[in-house]
Every structure is written in structure tokens, then in C-alpha cells.
Write a protein that binds this DNA or RNA. Sequence first.
DNA 1: CGGGATCCGTTACGATACTG
DNA 2: CAGTATCGTAACGGATCCCG
Lengths: 224, 224
Amino acid sequence: MTGLRRYALLCPIGRALDRVGDRWTLLILRDLHAGPARFSELQAGLKGIAPNLLTDRLNQLIADGLVEKRNAEHGVSLYALTALGGRTRDLLFELAMFGGRFAADAEVRRPGNLRTIAVTLETACQRVVQPDASFVARFEVDGEPFTLTADDGRVTMRAGETDAPDVEMATSYEPMIAASEGEMDMEKFVREHVRLVTHTPGKDRELLDLLGGAMRLIDAIAGS
Amino acid sequence: MTGLRRYALLCPIGRALDRVGDRWTLLILRDLHAGPARFSELQAGLKGIAPNLLTDRLNQLIADGLVEKRNAEHGVSLYALTALGGRTRDLLFELAMFGGRFAADAEVRRPGNLRTIAVTLETACQRVVQPDASFVARFEVDGEPFTLTADDGRVTMRAGETDAPDVEMATSYEPMIAASEGEMDMEKFVREHVRLVTHTPGKDRELLDLLGGAMRLIDAIAGS
DNA sequence: CGGGATCCGTTACGATACTG
DNA sequence: CAGTATCGTAACGGATCCCG
């Protein structure tokens, strides 16, 4: 929280890195794109970041106006992106597209939760969605519930439950990554790793098409 | 150069950060987008990065395949982006667009050279250029020469001289930043801070339009 | 029990000096 | 010019402890 080690450059890239360039900071923002989160959810998702570091980073993000702390009931506090913090979306997406070019490390540490997928998937869906698409989907990944909504072409993906979804589907993390990176073809992925829980004739195809299109887009950008 | 402190995540954002997330690394890449550079040019541009750190970062980048070391004549070596390293362009552009939202620090350190401007300007020009544009411009900023070329719609901006440019213009750094961030309006910038050295009726307007369009784009993205 | 704060060993960074 | 070597300092990582 001391804040030495800043570049203090006029260059906008330097200015950005002074806000989000510290270790963990971009990963925290990534996870917050899945919606407001508690301290412990972030800590779990980041697989054991030291709590003092998480505190430091959050305070820095709050000081810079990227994150706000909300006091919910029962003394629990929630950390949420501000509008400014939300503008990291395209940045995180480009980071994902670049990282997709590299093979995963030999010993891969699984995150404590899957909030990590939300930004990339939301951004990709946003870029391929039909302009008039509208639905609410419950999207479960390895047991963790997400809510993917399209509201007249505006897509959001958030961690957590929704009531009255139009469609419900379930899948798991590693196959999703594999299919997004061209290691598994999309047909096999959908056939073997996607389970449609409810069947609404028009809507489930719409969701599958959106998701497939998003994953194909990711593959196309990161694989080229 | 030890390389502990990696995230080792399956998440592509984590994989990217394991390559480019260390301090200075993205700034080195930024400067290399202006073309191959010698050790001392990088060191000067990064305003006094410790030489051992620069060595470490370059070696890491080489090991990861983002940078290559070329041995030029007279024993001087040049560091250059590989094709893979060049794929950081959009990432760096998004970083610049995000950083543009923040006010510069009170005491701003000027970079030792202006290679820093190349990525952002090249990317912005690329996005607004006419599909059939073609010219070679000598673009001087505070005495440092750059070469901005459009080859049938493909734009590059590199540090260094060119022979036989179609247009020559000169400007300076701080006004460029100010105009790109909406702090100075474009007309005033062009009128007071841009000097056209040669006059080629069609071409100088083409260049001014391109540059103005690029700076307006930057302002539009980062100022919204 | 969730949400941190404190402490301490380790690693990385920053500055300067030095060398082929 | 292009780095290497050294060393003090700041940041990180892990564990434990504290408080509402």
C-alpha cells in the first residue's frame, strides 16, 4: 500500500500500468467482472493470495476509483467494479487473446472458483451476438452457477443464480478452454461436454449458437 | 531471471501475465514496437531502468519467443519483436486507451526517447486509415525522427529516418498527448504545434487527416 | 465464521559500481 | 557500448492471530 515503484510517465500505457500493473491487480479485476464479490470469494478464486496483498490491492483499486466497497447486510462487505473499473473489459479480453497463444504450464493450478471465465466469455459473446437477441440463461460450469443474459443485444455474464431462466445448460471448465483454443472441435465439445437441462425449442439453440460463436471467435483471434 | 512467482493458471489471462506481467516488460515491448532497438536505446527510453533488470526482462522475453536478439555489424546487437511479440499490439493499445482515462501524475518523468508513442499511434492510424492509402512520411517529434508509412492501407510507424519521404512534418510530444486526450482541440494543435516541412499538395493533407483521425479516435475511446 | 491485520522469511527490484 | 556484480530496500508469500 506504500505505492513507491510507480512509473510516473506521461505515456498513457505507463499511466495504466501504475493503476493495474501490480501483481494480482488484473486478476482481481478479472474476477470482479463476474459481479460483486466478497473478500473471501476473491481470496478463494485467486487460489490463496495472501490476505494482506488482497487488502492492499483492493485499497489501491478503491483509491484509484476502479472498485468500490459496499457494505451489505450482516456486516459482510462486497467489492464491485465502478464504471471506470468496468472499462478494463477490453483490456482483459486482449490479455486473454494474447495468453491463449501460449501452452499452459505443466503443473496448472486450478482457481478456487470460476469467476475467471466471465470477462472473456462475456466480451466474446458481446461481439458475436445478434443485435436483437434477448434471453436469460442459467449457465453452470462444474457446479458453479452463472447467469448469461442478452438484453436486446447487450450481453452480461455474472456469477450467481437467476430466477426464471429461459434456458439452463451445464458444462465444465477444462473442455471449454480446450474448445476455445482449437484443441477440441466445437461439435465434440457440444456433444460430449454440454448438457441442456431445460428444453425451450427456440431459446436453447440461440444460446448454443451464441456460446459456440463466442468460443469460435476466441479461437480465431488467439489462434491466428 | 529466476522465474518463481508465476501464476501457472489455465486461464489465458494468467498465462499472458506470466509472460508480460512483470514490471517493465510491457514497457519494453511498447518501445520495441517502434522497431528494433539496441540495449542502450531501451535503457535510455525507459529512463534509467536498472541494466540488470533490462537484461533479465529481455532474456525472459527471448525465452518466451516474444523478442529475438540480432547481431548486427560492429558487435552491436539489436533486440526486435518476433511475430509473436508483435501480437501485443492490440493489448498495448487497450492499455493506452485505459491509461488515457487517468490524469498524469504531478511530477511526470519524461522518457529518454519517444519510441513510446509508436504503438499507440500506429494502431490508431491503422484503424482510421483509408483502405487504399499509400505514402511515406517523415514524422519528427521533438527532434526524433519517425517514419510513418501507409502501404495500400497497411500502416507502420517506426523510429528512424527514411529516404525520399512524400511528406515531412514536425511536432512535439506534450501537445500531441494533450490533443489526443481532448485537452487541446485538434485545430489548435495543428495550427500551433504542427509544422509541415515539405509541401506536396495531395499528400500533406492525407497525412494530416490520418493523424488527426487517429488522435480523434484515441480521444473518443479513452475519453468516453 | 467471514474479514481482515500482524509478523517474518524470501524474492524481486533499484541504484551504483564495475568489467569485457 | 553492453552488459555483470553487488548490495540495500521494498514487495511478496505464507502462516498465524485477532476482532466483530
